[in-house]
Design a protein around this nucleic acid. Structure first.
Lengths: 155, 155
DNA sequence: TATTGTTATACTCTATAACTATA
DNA sequence: TATAGTTATAGAGTATAACAATA
């Protein structure tokens, strides 16, 4: 009876009432692509027990060790209060640590712990494999161009 | 003192330890673009009191009236149980209704209410304006190509 | 047996507002 | 006054597992 799979069917019939253009919106397609990718990512990295969102926190800390929570929030586009909870979770798992900043006792310098660095290192092969597998419908040139366009849009 | 804005700075310093390629991953850039777009969308449509996620539920119901909850979940890439809560919220606000399906008493046919249709109609101008504004750094050709690549990726 | 919807449960992600400590 | 972090609070979004009704 032809099972319907997620990636097969989205909007089976033409839209009525002249609103058929909405599914061609950037945000709509961006969101759908991101949801699909996150699910595949989560499945591909399940053994490491890190959500895509948590991975998205570890990466900028690894790339810019010592940044503070406000800077991390700015880099991620989320509020300072959101960062607190995210770092709490990662600190509880001993992946990230808050270090005092010599010149400013209000601020915390964020660093990956040795364990956090090891985790990221261990995850890299799975992450790369996922990247290759998930972008399987794109040529390498298309994949690069997609990333370039996304950067132009958001960064 | 040069305030740092979200769209200005992401990864201020080159990544150490040979992991600098991670920020070039598809998922990382997809997520960042989507977060930025959703926030701008939310701000641009704040008066309508609909989250980007809720908008993303209303659109496929409008495009495919009468679909059931399992089909909606498949279309959105989320679990059936997630759909229940999402529809509950929209039904409570009288934007969506569950109708009985003649041939199958297990199933609910989803439809926008008159109020839901009016809301969507009223939102369209703001949504289009947001689309134009947000993709301001892209040419129209680039915007179209980005959407084409996203469709190729996710559905 | 299989499918549709639901509930119970738990966790992540998010923001606003008010607060403390520090600058 | 302004900034960094925190807490309290609230809500959205998500999944898994178990269940009832129906097919």
């Amino acid at each position: 009876m032809s099972e319907i799979k997620r990636r097969d069917v989205l909007l089976p019939t033409p839209a009525p009432k002249g609103r058929g253009l909405l599914p061609d919106l950037l945000g709509y397609n961006l969101r759908r692509a991101q949801v699909a990718l996150f699910q595949d990512f989560a499945a591909a990295t399940a053994e490491h027990d890190v959500t895509p969102g948590q991975f998205g926190v570890l990466v900028p800390i690894d790339a810019t060790p010592g940044l503070n929570q406000t800077e991390l929030g700015d880099a991620m586009g989320v509020d300072r209060s959101t960062v607190v909870a995210a770092i709490d979770r990662l600190q509880k798992r001993n992946l990230v640590e808050r270090r005092p900043v010599p010149g400013d006792r209000r601020s915390h310098a964020l660093h990956l712990t040795a364990q956090g660095q090891q985790l990221l290192t261990r995850m890299v092969p799975a992450v790369r494999a996922h990247e290759t597998q998930f972008s399987g419908h794109l040529t390498e040139a298309e994949r690069r161009q997609l990333i370039a366009l996304l950067k132009k849009l958001a960064g």
